[in-house]
Nucleic acid binder design. Structure first.
Length: 275
DNA sequence: CACGAGACCTGTTCGC
DNA sequence: TGCGAACAGGTCTCGT
């Protein structure tokens, strides 16, 4: 489900409450239950349990699509992958339809990691750079200037769509927001990165930021049963709009496959670039 | 380095 | 209606 805006929304809910649940920051972890073994990446189950019990959740942040739980001693990273979600409530009965790991907190609270497809992963680390170290820049961080983004694009020959999906090139984007940003910038998804001129690179970065900021403002996009809470899905220009008229020119939105991912675009507004 | 295929998984929707 | 195929927000690994 979740790309940067959805993960950001969840991180905020963990800190301040939201999505119909109270915050978890300030609570202490009293017990953990692992219901699907592979959900836990690092360390092993015994060590994980021994280390995490007793730690207090000091803060929750986000890097790329990872949630960072800053605990008293360690950092716990949670990656939701396709269908993961975090639910907060009370009692001992695991919340949600597909609980994979459940944290029992003080004051009878619980945090339940739900994940239908079991792709999600959790790490407990002294130093989270072990996992986050190679990630590319945050798209909303001002240290990623238009000039730097242009330079980075110039050094790559890959098609834009798979390149923007590469978390080591730029962090946090996924299938939805890439399709939306490329449409907004009027750039074809199969364009070779190094063929963009400076103006187009600038337009692309601007479009990425606009789409992400608007989505965060709307608390992300709710699609199907995986993630709920946001309503940016009502603003999709191309994603899952196959056959619908382009808002700009009326041409029916097309769906193609690029790098094995479904890709939505307006073939009139987004014309392939040739060298 | 770029690219494609296959894995990891389950649930929903589509086509016949 | 029923049933298999296709598809899904992500990422890793392997082979060419």
């Amino acid at each position: 489900m979740p790309e940067l805006p959805e993960v950001e929304t969840i991180a905020r809910a963990m800190r301040e409450g939201g999505r119909g649940a109270p915050p978890v920051v300030g609570h202490r972890i009293k017990d953990v239950e692992l219901l699907w073994k592979r959900t836990l990446d690092t360390p092993g189950p015994r060590s994980f349990k021994r280390r995490i019990i007793g730690q207090r959740i000091e803060d929750v942040g986000r890097r790329a699509k990872y949630l960072q739980f800053k605990l008293s001693e360690d950092t716990m990273l949670v990656h939701l992958r396709m269908t993961g979600d975090l639910l907060v409530g009370s009692g001992r009965k695991p919340l949600g339809k597909h609980p994979r790991m459940v944290f029992y907190l003080d004051k009878n609270k619980q945090l339940s990691f739900n994940d239908a497809r079991k792709f999600g992963r959790i790490w407990l680390l002294e130093d989270d750079s072990m996992v986050l170290g190679k990630l590319g820049p945050e798209p909303l961080d001002s240290s990623l200037t238009a000039a730097k983004f242009y330079k980075n694009l110039k050094e790559r020959k890959r098609q834009l769509k798979p390149l923007l999906l590469d978390q080591n090139f730029i962090a946090g984007l996924g299938n939805i927001y890439i399709d939306e940003a490329l449409n907004l910038a009027k750039i074809h998804p199969t364009t070779q990165a190094n063929l963009l001129n400076e103006k187009q690179a600038q337009a692309l970065l601007k479009a990425i930021r606009k789409v992400l900021k608007e989505a965060i403002r709307r608390n992300g996009a709710s699609i199907d049963w995986a993630y709920r809470g946001g309503d940016f899905q009502n603003d999709f220009r191309v994603y899952q709009q196959t056959g619908e008229p382009c808002q700009h020119c009326g041409t029916p939105i097309d769906r193609i496959v690029v790098g094995q991912r479904g890709t939505h675009l307006c073939t009139h507004c987004q014309v392939p670039l040739t060298a």
